Computed example of a mutant assay.
Amino acid sequence: MEKPLEYLIRKPKVSVEKPPLLLLLHGVGSNEEDLFSLTNYLPDSMLIVSVRGPLTLGRDSYGWYEVLFTTGQPKINLEQERESRKLLLEFLDYLKLNYQFDESKVWIGGFSQGAIMSYSIGLLHPERIKGIIALSGRLLEENKTIVDATEKVLNKRIFISHGTNDRVLSVEYARSVKGYLESIGIHPHYKEYEEGHSINREMLKDLIQWLEVELENPK
């Protein structure tokens, strides 16, 4: 099977026969090296893969789909978003063929557009994903309408962080996702920070603590 997407990988720092897998998805205009810089801080037992978006926007600049803000509201290219979802699912199959990991413990997370893609994969393909990490993201309204609130969806473990001073994606998006998830029976770990559109030390510390607790949970 050919490699569907470019990526960087950090293998577990400790000996684990079938480690949990964490996929990291960057924001628009960035690349796989961005979130890969966090891997030194994340749990040693995890196999961590930082993935490059398929859309080339410029030199070392990639995305998962195009967005236009001409109306004041983000208007996305839904076809590209669907294609990126398809590629990420193929990429999971590719990883399965090439690396050992626990398929029942696959986490997906990202920043901004990467968080948006993480919601899409985790909620629309719940059989493939145990948990979602959404840093400064939103849930696409177009995808919210096709989420099927099955037991697999309701069992999702979800971490949401967002800056109250975010001028790119307002914190209202995160609050809206939280309200929606609670309305269907999911109670995410949710926290706001006095921060803009970025990941600060406090967010990272909270994420690490949350992940460590989740990894110890046998369910």
Rank of each mutant, 00 (worst) to 15 (best):
S45D: 13
L35F: 07
L89R: 11
D44S: 09
G58F: 07
R82L: 07
G58V: 04
D44K: 11
T70N: 12
S50C: 11
S37K: 15
S45A: 11
S37W: 11
L95M: 02
G29E: 09
L38F: 15
E66W: 01
L22A: 08
I48H: 01
N31F: 07
P74T: 11
D60A: 14
L47Q: 08
E81D: 13
S61H: 09
L97N: 05
Y41S: 13
G63F: 03
M46S: 10
G63N: 06
K96M: 02
G27Y: 03
Y41V: 14
L92I: 09
R85H: 02
L88G: 08
K86E: 14
R82D: 02
V28K: 11
E32I: 00
Y62R: 12
R85S: 08
G63H: 03
L21Q: 02
H26R: 04
Y94P: 02
R52S: 09
L68T: 13
G72R: 10
E33K: 15
R82K: 14
M46E: 05
L25E: 13
V67D: 02
L35C: 08
L92N: 00
S45L: 06
E90Q: 13
S45G: 14
K86R: 15
P74Y: 03
E79V: 01
L23E: 06
S50N: 13
K86W: 09
L23C: 06
Y94S: 01
I48V: 15
W64N: 03
E79L: 00
Q80D: 05
R52T: 05
E79H: 00
D44Q: 14
L92A: 02
L42F: 10
R82C: 00
G72D: 03
D60T: 09
M46P: 08
L25Q: 13
L78F: 12
D60F: 10
P43R: 05
E33Y: 15
S84L: 01
V51P: 04
E79T: 05
L89H: 00
R59A: 12
